[in-house]
Amino acid sequence: MKVPFRGDFLSRLAVVLLISLLLLGFVGPSLPVGDPAAIAFGPRLSPPAPGWLMGTDNLGRTMLPRVLQGIRITFVLAATPVLITSVLAVVIGMLAGYLGGWFDELVARLADVLFAFPSLLLGLILVAIMGPGVRGITAAIILITLPLMVRVVRATTLTIASRDYVAASRVSGASLARLLLVHLLPNIAGAVVVQATFTISVSMLIESGLSFLGIGVQPPVASLGSLVQNGSVYLVQAPWLALAPGVFLALAIFAVNLLGDGLRDRLDPLEAHGLK
């Protein structure tokens, strides 16, 4: 088997980090680490100790399983909207790029309007309207990330569609669906994967930012962002409450960014090698 990212230490580091974080988040909570919801599991605001490796919070809940759960929730809340965004963007972007005309113009205008909102602000207003919670942030992330993704797909589609073999198969009477699925989709897949990876890190930033502001996930669900917010109230007495989830969150986004770079180098060489 071919070793992925041969000679690329940072990308391998990213993969190892991501796998570890996913294992922690998805397998960790089922290990005997304590009940994340149990109030007065230990003393209140206790520093890390053998029974509660990450200390306890203001209600005496053990932080370790709460952080592990937070990792899982952060990943799920970031990946779900990105998946939806990717599918929507591929459909809209390919059609806009391939068909052109009024549809393309409409898509470009709508993207401009969405782009006119700074991302966090767009998140704020959507959450304001839909109410805080998972539904609100998911919708917010999709709307924030969709315009850029559509632009990437559209631009890539334009490049590919101008190649001779696409024109050739169009002339030979291939159906629109066939053209898009057989000739275009495989060729834009690389760019979509790269963009989706970066989008995951963007959506982690948005979700955690909104949750930190108290308008993201609502208790009892806790993502890393809302854990930091809870902890920040007791920052001076119990700094580990905020810093532990903060470190994991930063690690997760760091790893996703690094992976995105590595994937871009591999899958999107046109983008990657400015210097030749």
């Binding site: 940072l10 890190s201 930033l205 955690s208 930012g209 930190f212 962002g225 930091v228 917010q229 902890g231 920040s232 920052l235 001076v236 700094p239 905020a242 810093l243 903060g246 470190v247 969150l249 930063a250 986004i253 760091f254 996703v256 960014n257 690094l258 770079d261």
Partner: peptide, 26 residues
Amino acid sequence: SRAISALGMGIPSFVLGTLFVYVFSV
């Protein structure tokens, strides 16, 4: 430079800010 930029773009501002609040209040 790749690692630093991934880290810089990765660290959420509120995490850094929380760290500042802690260090500079203590």
